[in-house]
Design a protein around this nucleic acid. Structure first.
Lengths: 311, 311
DNA sequence: AATATACATGAATAATTATTCATTTTGGAT
DNA sequence: ATCCAAAATGAATAATTATTCATGTATATT
């Protein structure tokens, strides 16, 4: 084992010249008779050893006040409102994912829906330190035959690769008719998944509206469908299940053809958390909360304000 | 006046992402929906506002222990030993200049010799915050007809340009014979300079040896001269004046031809400080101290160790 | 309102910093 | 001593950051 090569004194000198006197590394290199590359390395060592400390005031990503308002108004157990910065919500996923990740514990069984918002959440979670041995389970069938990054299966696979396992639901989200749906539900493999739903510690779902969701984007629900759904009293959608203003699943033509966790199961899951980033979901969120489909919400400030302001 | 455009919160966010999470500015720019240039500016603002603080352990450039040893051994009033770092002494001038500059006060009358070491000192001083209205005076004539950066006149001019004024000694350091020297000394302009010497608050001089000094480098003193000087008891040189081990000026053929402050004047100057960076000057330094030609010393650690170790 | 002025902005670019890679050095282990 | 593996090194290069510059925008002043 080689002894420590560089004295604190030497590192302190390099650090002082670069960080206090703002002398470029090239010149410091001349002064110290080493290469610029080494100065860069010395500085990195100095930071590691704590000779250089870069401190930044704490940034508070959450708007606690709004969180409390929403908790109260919608009767939710947990609400996270992520501050919107600039005109974008890009930072939202960054902090949102981190906050959500911190609420997970090793060996948790985690339900995962599909959609853009959940995908972004997952991407952020992968950058955080995920707990060990998480079990992910796919909450809804796949939206099309061509795998999409927004599919619950894709998202679950990636998460599981980082920590733990993944149980997939190998079906489309909507099948042709009720008969096929029922047959699939009797399949042992599918049954196993559905049983697993009852053991979830937490479920992460997106909230859609007839006109705008991953289903409409992929044309699983087209404009005419949306109109009809609205006529049938639909206010929102979770995992391909459409519900009315009271949070009850509506009797639509999709209801008998959907393969996904059912709303009653979500209602019984200890933590059922909706992840929302759009501002046009206020009514859907309220309905889901009213019906107890969700008891938690991760939302950005802009959407949260819309939620509080409207109605 | 425009109001403050960016909230602390926004700057804190940018700073946090860059400095804590180490996300490159380009990506932070996307997250915040601004250009990378702006992120760079935001960070600069954050540092300015104190939202980001970069702290470095204090670097101590001086070796106080050696300073005390040398003070005691040579009976000097002020000694500054600058730590040597790596194999070079480049950092020495950097810190040495700064320390010396801090001992100067506005309106000081400062004597300046020539030579490489003094030149480097001056270069460093120019980078420091010099006090107002310093008067510099040239302690020795010029070494050649072609202006050199190491000439006292060049050094003084530069310093004066930064703060205050400069009085030059418009003569060669060595003239042809005694008669010419004496005539020059009677010249009113020269006399004025010499009179000024008596008012100096501090003098900065280099210390040479016959074989190695700015005089030998410029061939004003050649190898044969050096040999002869050694035979005549010369141990060191300050401002073209050669002295023996007791610090008394030797009766050499240069003595009658030199145009420079005389050693007696230096002896009476409140602060007469030698700047030394080479290790082969130990005997010369001791002699100058013994004779009271200098009462102060700025030296690097390597040379200081040689000084303490030898004899 | 019209104009001037200072400030703000981002694209392009310059400057700086970090990393890669080929080579050398170092400190053991024979 | 001789060899080996690990670590260190700097030149070249890639990546990142800061600055310049041309243009746009807001504020103040006629």
């Amino acid at each position: 084992m080689r002894q420590v090569k560089y004295s604190d004194d030497f590192l302190t000198l390099a650090a002082r010249l670069c960080y206090i006197d703002h002398i470029p590394q090239q010149k410091v290199a001349q002064m110290l008779q080493v290469s610029q590359a080494k100065v860069s390395r010395l500085l990195s060592m100095a930071r590691e050893r704590g000779i250089v400390r870069i401190e930044v005031n704490a940034y508070e990503p959450r708007n606690y006040q709004l969180e409390e308002s929403i908790k109260k108004k919608l009767g939710l157990k947990e609400v996270y409102v992520i501050k919107s910065i600039g005109c974008s919500n890009t930072g939202t996923e960054y902090f949102g994912s981190d906050i959500i990740t911190q609420t997970l514990q090793p060996d948790f069984k985690v339900g995962i829906a599909g959609g853009r918002t959940i995908m972004q959440l997952a991407e952020g979670m992968l950058k955080s330190d995920l707990p060990q041995r998480l079990s992910f389970v796919q909450l809804m069938g796949n939206v099309g035959s061509i795998p999409q990054a927004t599919d619950a299966s894709e998202i679950g696979r990636k998460l599981a690769a980082a920590t733990g396992s993944f149980m997939s639901l190998n079906t489309p989200v909507f099948v042709y008719d009720r008969e096929l749906r029922d047959k699939l539900r009797r399949d042992p493999q599918i049954k196993q998944v559905v049983e697993y739903y009852h053991q979830m510690d937490v479920a992460f779902v997106g909230i859609g509206i007839p006109e705008n969701s991953i289903l409409s984007i992929s044309n699983a629900v087209v404009k005419e469908d949306a109109l009809r759904l609205r006529e049938q009293g639909v206010v929102g959608e979770i995992c391909g299940r459409f519900f009315d203003a009271s949070g009850k699943e509506c009797a639509t033509d999709f209801k008998d053809r959907v393969l996904a966790v059912n709303l009653e199961t979500l209602r019984k899951t200890p933590r059922s958390i909706a992840i929302v980033s759009d501002t046009d979901r206020s009514d859907a969120i309220k309905a889901a909360a009213a019906g107890g489909i969700i008891n938690g919400l991760l939302i950005n400030e802009t959407a949260a304000k819309a939620l509080i302001t409207e109605s």
